[in-house]
Structures are given as C-alpha cells and as structure tokens.
C-alpha cells in the first residue's frame, strides 16, 4: 500500500475540477427545473466526441470546445422544449424520459463515431509536464484545474451579480412567484438548461483530453455528477464545488490506498453524509 503524495493530491484536485465543470451544469438544471437530467452524461459524451471531431478538423482545441458547447446547448434546447415540455411537473416521467434520451444519444454516437476510444488533441502549449512543488506534473491537468476555478468564478458572478442570476435563484426558491412577477419562467428555464448542457459539452472536451472518450464514459461521469450534487445540495454552486472537491480527493485516495474499494470510498461517506443531512451540505427543502 502506498502513501498519499502531492502527485495524487493534484490528480484528485484536477479530477475535482473536471467533475465540477460537469456537475455545475447538472446542479443548475436540477435546482431550477427540478429535473434529474439523466442525459447529462450523454451530453458530456456527445459534446466530447463532437468536440474531438471539430478539434481534429480545425486543428484547434478552442474551436473544438466551442463547437461542443454550442452543439450540446442546442441539444439541451431541443430536449427542454421538444420533449420535457410534454411531461412538465411529473418528475418520474421526466427522469425516465431523460434516461431514454441518454440511451438514444449513446447509440447515435456509436453509429457516428464507433466504439473506439478517442482522445481530444491537446494544444501544443499544454503538452508536456512542469515542476510543481517538487513533482513533475502534466501541464494540461493544471490547465483543467485553472479552468475549473474560472468556471466557478464565472458562474458565481453570473448567479450573484447579474439580473439573470437573481431570476435563476428566485426560480429555484419559488418559480410560481417569479412567473407572477411578470417574468416568463419558461424562458429562464430554457436558458438555464442550455447553459447547464453547454457545461456538460465543455466537460466532455476537457475531460476527453485526459480521461479519453469511450462508449460508457457517459455513465461514469453521470454517477460522479450525481454524487457531487447530492453531497453539495440541489442547485447550490458552492455545494457543487465542495462536493466535487470531496469526490475528487476521495477518488484519488481510494484509487491509491484501496483500489478494490475505490467506489466505496466515495459512496460510503456520501451515504453517511445523507444520513445526517438528507438535503446535502447546502440543500434546502423545496
């Protein structure tokens, strides 16, 4: 059995940054629309694969990431307006519908990209390693960590310092009352869904460069996102950040110290936390 060193802690932190990017989109949708969007993992995978193709074709990682975000935001709009609008307010149907969409997206991506493993090409400047605190560490994973922090800061500013953010928070509290104030809450829902989906797409490209993309990657990232949001509390950005940090670090520790029990190391503490705080760290009753 190995001890924990800085290298593994950095692995945990960079993995935390990735699952935060994905889970922040998940928690936005979950908090406002009260939908557990089980297609979120599929949006991650489709975004990653589409981003891979766009990055290959254009030779640019940034173009790949932007293409993934736009495509997946559009898929989110279709999902929200085209499908979910028929089952509004019936939670079980919404969950089942998103699960069905997840299967369909998965199959479509098998048809288009096949069952191979893909790795999104990393830009030249982010290749190789750098010294950090006495260890050689991949530059790209440091970039992911920084990007996670930037996404957190941007979302925090959006939610806390803009009118749209106030509308989203008010909508999490009491959507009916927001509607009675003359605001079309459906439009706020749609915008939030597209933003949340775009974050899954961004996560797909970013994660696809170091975790690689393969047919069951969507289910794995979905499980991590669920854990993050359940630990952090529905709709809470700070909760998602802390949840991601916890899950990322536990995952790194578990893989090193108890490889056979890696999942238990994450979900054991999660179950314990839920026993005492059923709504998560920052969750509030509806």
């Amino acid at each position: 059995m190995m001890g924990i060193n800085l290298f593994q802690i950095l692995n945990g932190l960079t993995f935390a940054a990735l699952i935060f990017i994905v889970a922040s989109g998940f928690t936005l949708i979950f908090g406002l629309l009260r939908i557990v969007n089980l297609a979120h993992g599929a949006l991650y995978l489709v975004g990653g694969l589409a981003g891979y193709s766009a990055a290959k074709a254009s030779g640019s990682f940034v173009v790949g990431a932007l293409a993934a975000m736009v495509l997946v935001a559009a898929l989110g709009a279709v999902l929200d307006r085209g499908l979910l609008s028929f089952v509004r307010g019936v939670e079980l149907r919404q969950v089942l519908l998103t699960l069905g969409v997840a299967f369909i997206l998965n199959d479509i991506s098998l048809v288009i990209w096949g069952g191979d493993t893909f790795s999104v090409p990393v830009p030249e400047v982010l290749r190789g390693a750098m010294w950090i605190g006495g260890v050689m560490y991949p530059k790209y994973r440091i970039f992911v960590l920084v990007l996670g922090l930037l996404v957190f800061a941007a979302l925090w500013l959006l939610l806390n310092k803009t009118r749209l953010g106030a509308l989203i928070r008010a909508g999490v509290d009491d959507p009916e009352m927001v509607e009675a104030m003359g605001i079309n809450i459906r439009r706020v829902f749609l915008g939030t869904f597209m933003l949340g989906a775009a974050l899954a797409g961004l996560g797909g490209v970013v994660g696809g460069a170091f975790l690689t993309l393969y047919p069951s990657a969507d289910a794995e990232i979905l499980v991590f996102s669920l854990a993050v949001v359940i630990i952090g509390g529905r709709g809470s950005l700070v909760g998602a950040a802390l949840g991601a940090l916890l899950v990322g670090l536990l995952n790194a520790i578990g893989q090193v110290m108890f490889p056979e029990l890696a999942y238990f190391v994450i979900f054991g503490p999660m179950a314990l936390l839920l026993a005492f705080r059923p709504l998560g760290l920052f969750g509030r009753a509806a």
Binding site: A166, L167, M177, G182
Partner: peptide, 15 residues
C-alpha cells in the same frame, strides 16, 4: 412568499 436567496434590493431589481 419572498425569495430566501435574494437580498431586499434583488427582490426589486430582478424585475
């Protein structure tokens, strides 16, 4: 039915 997440000012400026 105020919004617990919003400040007094935000209750007004959201509109």
């Amino acid at each position: 039915r105020l919004f617990p997440s919003l400040t007094v000012t935000e209750h007004l400026t959201m509109i």
